[in-house]
């Protein structure tokens, strides 16, 4: 049974989710990956309001004519581990990506009642069908790495790390320590 969630997300919803729960997310999310994270972290930029926001680690392919976006799957979250705890301290609540997180990020998720959701890596064409609109709102010079505001409807995700310390990846090879 997939749970329906919306952004901006409230703490009750965050606490109700457990690692392994499949969710369908509707609302605004913001793309940011390596280069944008470096700027948000080092320059203190806030290209979108961080409070209760959801960031999607993604750099889409260009939108073909008549479509809001090109293919838009998750990139590897671990590369953003260095920056994530500081951004959560500044209000960011939800991270969407793929793959394991560092012990520091896992601890920050618990501390700030955050949430880490995984999109299926490689399902980028399929995920593009859940994106209703996409607009570049910061760092246009970064191309695929610019920050985009997306409106998504029933975006299919899996709860990868919950605010109780649970982690889906603990079920497989790599242990998740909190």
């Amino acid at each position: 049974m997939k749970k329906l969630i919306t952004t901006p997300i409230d703490d009750d919803t965050i606490c109700s989710l457990r690692a392994g729960d499949e969710v369908l997310l509707t609302g605004k999310i913001y793309t940011a990956r390596d280069a944008a994270h470096k700027r948000m972290f080092e320059n203190g930029d806030e290209p979108f309001p961080f409070a209760r926001a959801a960031v999607y680690y993604a750099g889409p392919s260009p939108a073909p004519p008549g479509r809001p976006t090109g293919s838009i799957g998750p990139t590897t979250s671990g590369r953003m581990d260095k920056y994530a705890p500081a951004l959560m301290a500044r209000g960011l609540k939800v991270m969407i990506g793929k793959g394991q997180r560092s012990p520091e990020v896992m601890a920050a998720i618990k501390r700030y009642s955050g949430l880490y959701l995984a999109a299926v890596g490689g399902a980028a064409a399929l995920l593009s069908r859940s994106v209703l609109s996409s607009e570049v709102i910061a760092y246009p010079e970064l191309g695929a790495e610019s920050v985009r505001e997306l409106f998504v409807e029933n975006f299919p995700l899996i709860t990868a790390a919950d605010c109780h310390g649970g982690c889906i990846y603990a079920l497989s090879g790599e242990p998740c320590e909190v």
């Binding site: 392994g20 479509r67 090109g70 399929l126």
Partner: peptide, 28 residues
């Protein structure tokens, strides 16, 4: 169920990419 769900999404993704003529992964 989760493993089956992921495999199903990847199979569906291949169909959608071919139908819409868009790349199967954004990392081309």
């Amino acid at each position: 169920p989760l493993a089956r769900s992921v495999l199903g999404q990847l199979a569906e993704n291949a169909r959608v990419a071919a139908e819409l003529r868009i790349p199967m992964c954004q990392d081309t």
